[in-house]
């Protein structure tokens, strides 16, 4: 899964000097100089429209049709304009709604765990007692360099029901983890996602920690606050912004869960169904040749993701102003 890196929080500001200095050059509208920037942007804009906006519109449009097959299957199926059919069908499709519920549960549990881990690591590495900061920062960040699919492949070996190296490590404790059990497999997937992304989130939180002014920490120390107390009352509030940001991206990431379960599916012995996540479910519809239905599922998922992130941003915006 691809989490967009966390940069767009910077306020959209630009140096106040930019615009006026150029305006004084008195470039009339329609002059080549005024049009040049449009040329700079044109290739990107054209491709952006073609690869982002057009497919969504195309999917939204094609989701309005339903494939009708004649009773005997003797004639070719026809597409009939029936704008709500696919949507009502999707909302009543048990495996699709179950997949939505599954990623929601995944997000509610995995995101706080992963970010808790990331925060704890960032605080530990930032603490005065830490040694080998560079090394530990790097080790937690290394999984980020491994493509999601490769990470899932490696972990599928870790989970193997016959030769799991992890279970072999646990042997002295007489513990065997059934990674592919029906009740466990979602958390096996969660572990892969956590492994891949905890370090990435840690770096973002760590960068925020680094920007706390030294005087603030020094003052807290002078007041006799312990390291734990400083972490809790000074550092964590100071990185609130970074935490919100990483939360939003992780939630969005959960909704598009695909690579990890898709890679584990063939070796899971059936505990990962072919419609385990919404994207897998939509892909199923493609495999069945029912493109309009796949389109409707994609649109529903996109709307759900859009709403969740919008709500989150609205909530946190309000917090920022307070």
């Amino acid at each position: 899964m691809t989490h967009a890196p966390a940069a767009h929080r910077a306020p959209a500001r630009r140096p106040a000097t930019t615009a006026p200095s150029r305006r004084t050059r008195e470039t009339p509208p329609g002059h080549p100089r005024r049009l040049r920037p449009l040329l700079f942007c044109a290739p990107f804009v054209v491709l952006f429209v073609a690869m982002y906006i057009a497919p969504i519109l195309y999917a939204a449009y094609s989701s309005l049709f339903t494939i009708r097959r004649s009773g005997l299957g003797l004639t070719a199926p026809t597409e009939v304009f029936a704008p709500l059919d696919n949507y009502t069908r999707a909302l009543h499709d048990g495996s699709f709604t179950a997949s939505l519920g599954r990623v929601a549960l995944f997000g509610v549990v995995q995101v706080p765990l992963m970010l808790g881990l990331a925060l704890a690591l960032a605080l530990l590495i930032d603490s005065k007692s830490a040694r080998g900061r560079g090394f530990f920062r790097l080790t937690s960040f290394v999984p980020y360099a491994i493509p999601g699919v490769s990470a899932a492949l490696v972990w599928s070996f870790m989970y193997s029901s016959t030769s799991s190296p992890l279970n072999r490590l646990l042997e002295p404790l007489a513990v065997t983890v059934p990674f592919f059990d029906q009740d466990v497999v979602l958390w096996s997937v969660a572990n892969i996602v956590t492994w891949s992304w905890a370090g990435y989130n840690m770096i973002i939180i760590y960068a925020a920690l680094q920007s706390i002014p030294a005087e603030v920490l020094e003052a807290a120390r002078m007041d006799g606050a312990s390291a734990l107390r400083i972490a809790w009352s000074v550092k964590i509030p100071a990185v609130r912004g970074a935490l919100v940001l990483t939360t939003v991206f992780s939630i969005i990431g959960s909704a598009q869960l695909y690579n990890e379960p898709a890679v584990l599916q063939p070796v899971s012995g059936g505990s990962i169904s072919s419609a385990f996540t919404p994207l897998m479910s939509a892909q199923n519809a493609v495999a069945d040749g029912n493109y309009p239905y796949a389109a409707a599922q994609s649109v529903l998922l996109a709307v759900a993701v859009g709403m969740v992130s919008l709500i989150f941003f609205k909530l946190t915006r309000r917090g920022d102003h307070a």
Binding site: A4, P37, L38, P55, S62, Q256, Y258, L279, A295, S309
Partner: peptide
């Protein structure tokens, strides 16, 4: 500074937020 600059930037930001994978099925179709 050019006409449509603000709108283009808002579009870019919105697109950063939406994960690319969500566009995959529509792209395939």
């Amino acid at each position: 500074d050019f006409p449509g600059r603000g709108m283009l930037f808002s579009l870019v930001l919105a697109a950063v937020l939406v994960p690319k994978v969500l566009f995959t099925l529509p792209l395939y179709l």
